[in-house]
Every structure is written in structure tokens, then in C-alpha cells.
Write a protein that binds this DNA or RNA. Structure first.
Length: 352
DNA sequence: GATTCGTGGGA
DNA sequence: TTCCCAAGAAT
């Protein structure tokens, strides 16, 4: 009877998908792919990865790039701190490691945005080091194989899997072993109705033998979301330019651009009055709110924006100046990174 | 240790 | 429709 390890590696080598980041041995590109793949599906990542490595072919290209340009390349992918942290990290690599991605767990783990999973993934895939890379797939697969009933939603559970994998991982082919676990989780050992009859390591799976594969892994319920009513405005001046605003440096959608907007607390003044007051206090300008033209819902992990979009025109002669506000013509707006909800506003209100 | 960070797809 | 989720990390 062949071991779990060899059967998994063999299955991976026979069945692995042809993915762009599997065609390179460049640690930088493998790193980029791993950051993009954090909490993000393979099919979503593929076009972003191809575009990103075309725009920033080397670690140095990314290190010296403009922040707005890297955010634009990330536009629509979500979790935007990932790409800002990645640039911070590659700059650190240029400064302290001569432009070569470090190949030790201690060094690579100190880089911004590189946690236990990404460290293990880059070390094993790019440098063939026998380090575990525990992501959601791996916890699901291993929880079934070893019948581990700990809550995978809790932080203290992950070391349980890392310790178990330390004794399972292939010393000769750690890259294929780790990717094999993830590939198996993506293609066969799926969250709902896993394909056990197609599984290359079924004979080693305790959950399968116990008939518990569908009830694993154990995961706690999610937290409830809060809903916010927002009013946004496409405000034009006499030249036909549109006013956009840059979001703060930290927090939700940091450093992305948006149409000026306010939160409308329940049971207060009207949305129009909230917008009027916003421009009076922030820019000391007066505007005419024409009408509501669109409704946009933006669903986040733990938050929902219900946005009503208004049209408006600038009444004051002066345009109002602020660090984070800018009048742009309708062509150059394409070069600014926007969150998806405001991309929908651009589609409907600008590209007409 | 619990929350905060996006988005789109599928059951 | 609603819910869950997908190659997590920072705070």
C-alpha cells in the first residue's frame, strides 16, 4: 500500500490545472499569485495575475511603481491592503535582500502581508522547502483525512494542522505536496458533496470511513452585517468636469477614489440636505441637487451600503479646494482606482 | 482572540 | 433570495 503522501503527489502531477503561475519559477511571481489568491477564487485571479505581471514584470518594477497604478491594477479584486502591503514588502526586499525574495521562514515572515500561509506557500513552491502551507483547502482536506473536529474558524486551530503536516509533508516534493492538498480541496474534496469516489487518497480518509465527510470541517457561524444608507452625487461644474474624492489612507477601501457621499442616519434630514450640508462644511460651496438617478448596493463581508446616487451641478463660482477632492474630465476618470460600487456609477452616469 | 478588511459565484 | 464561501493577514 502506497502512502498518502506519494498518492497525493502522483495525483497532483497527473491532474494539476494549467495555471499561469505554474508556468514560472520566479519567486516574485509566485509570491504575487499567492497574495492574489488570498480569499479569492482561481478563476477570478487569472486575468488579474496576467495583467499584473505584464505591468510589473519584476520585483523592481513593482517596487518603483506609483501607488495609484498598483491600486488600479488591483481594482475590483478586493482587500486592497494586500497590494499596498505587497509593495511595501518588495521595497523591503530591494533594500535589505538585494532584490532577492528571502528563502527562510524567519526572514520572509517579517515582510508585510506575508503570514503563515503565504510564507509556507512561497518557501515550498518557489524554494522547495518542506514548510506547511495551511489555507482553507488544507484545513478542510486534513480535517477529513485525520477526522479533526476542532473549529477551523478559531485562530488557535491552525497550528494543529501545521503540526500534523510537519510529519506528512514530502521532503522531496514539498511544492507538489502542498499544491496537491490545495488542488484536491478545490477539485475533489470540496466543501459540499465532496467527490470521495474520485479521491486518490480515499483509503486514508478517516472521515470517509466514518461517513462524516459532509459534516467536516467544523466551522462556526458568521457575524451579522450592518446596513448603512448612503447618498452619493455625480457633481458637475460648468466645464462638465466631475468631482471625485480620495478615500482615507487607512481602513475600508483605503486610498481608492469615489464620488462624494455621506451616510444618511435613519430618522434624520433628507438625503439631499445631507449632501448640501456636506459641501457647505467641507468645501464651502453650494450645489444644486438635481434628482436621484441610480441605486447601488455594495455588499462587503460584514457591511452593506445602500447607495442612492444623485445628479448635481456646482452653483458657486469657485470650485472649492481640498486635499482629497479633484475635478476630472470624463476621460481621465478611467485612470483612477474605484471600488466596484462606484465603478457601477461610472458605467451608468459617465460613460453615456 | 475577535474584528476588520472585497468581491463574485454557486448551491 | 439568502447564505456561504475562496490559495489570509493585520489590528
Amino acid at each position: 500500500m502506497t502512502g498518502f503522501r506519494d498518492q497525493l503527489v502522483h495525483w497532483f502531477e497527473e491532474h494539476k490545472r494549467d495555471l499561469p503561475w505554474r508556468r514560472t519559477s520566479d519567486p516574485y511571481r509566485i509570491w504575487v499569485s499567492e497574495v492574489m489568491l488570498q480569499q479569492t477564487r482561481v478563476d477570478t485571479v487569472i486575468p488579474y495575475y496576467n495583467n499584473f505581471v505584464q505591468k510589473f514584470p519584476t520585483l523592481q518594477d513593482l517596487a518603483y511603481a506609483e501607488e495609484q497604478d498598483i491600486l488600479k491594477a488591483w481594482e475590483g479584486l478586493g482587500y486592497y491592503s494586500r497590494v499596498r502591503n505587497l509593495q511595501t514588502a518588495v521595497r523591503e526586499v530591494v533594500e535589505h535582500y538585494g532584490g532577492k525574495v528571502p528563502d527562510t521562514k524567519k526572514e520572509i515572515s517579517q515582510l508585510k502581508g506575508v503570514g503563515p500561509y503565504t510564507a509556507g506557500a512561497v518557501l515550498s513552491i518557489a524554494y522547495h522547502k518542506p514548510e506547511p502551507a495551511v489555507d482553507g483547502n488544507v484545513m478542510r482536506v486534513i480535517s477529513r483525512v485525520l477526522l479533526i473536529e476542532e473549529d477551523i474558524g478559531k485562530a488557535k486551530t491552525r497550528p494543529i494542522f501545521e503540526n500534523a503536516l510537519a510529519e506528512m509533508i514530502s521532503p522531496d516534493k514539498p511544492s507538489e505536496f502542498n499544491q496537491g492538498l490545495m488542488e484536491l480541496g478545490a477539485l475533489v474534496c470540496t466543501p459540499k458533496s465532496p467527490g470521495c469516489l474520485l479521491c486518490p487518497v480515499r483509503e486514508h480518509c478517516r472521515a470517509y470511513h466514518a461517513g462524516k465527510e459532509k459534516s467536516l470541517p467544523i466551522k462556526e457561524k458568521k457575524t451579522k452585517v450592518t446596513v448603512k444608507d448612503m447618498a452619493a452625487i455625480v457633481l458637475r461644474n460648468k466645464q462638465g468636469e466631475v468631482l471625485i474624492q480620495r478615500r482615507p489612507d487607512t481602513g475600508l477601501l483605503a486610498k481608492l477614489w469615489q464620488f462624494p457621499n455621506v451616510e444618511v442616519a435613519k430618522g434624520t434630514e433628507s438625503e439631499q440636505e445631507c449632501l448640501q450640508e456636506f459641501f457647505r462644511s467641507e468645501l464651502e460651496i453650494s450645489v444644486k441637487i438635481e434628482k436621484a438617478v441610480q441605486k447601488v448596493e455594495h455588499v462587503f463581508s460584514h457591511l452593506v451600503w445602500n447607495i442612492t446616487v444623485y445628479e448635481g451641478t456646482l452653483l458657486s463660482d469657485k470650485e472649492g479646494t481640498s486635499e482629497d477632492m479633484r475635478w476630472v474630465d470624463e476621460n481621465s476618470i478611467e485612470s483612477y482606482p474605484f471600488p466596484v460600487s462606484h465603478q457601477k456609477i461610472i458605467e451608468q452616469q459617465i460613460r453615456r
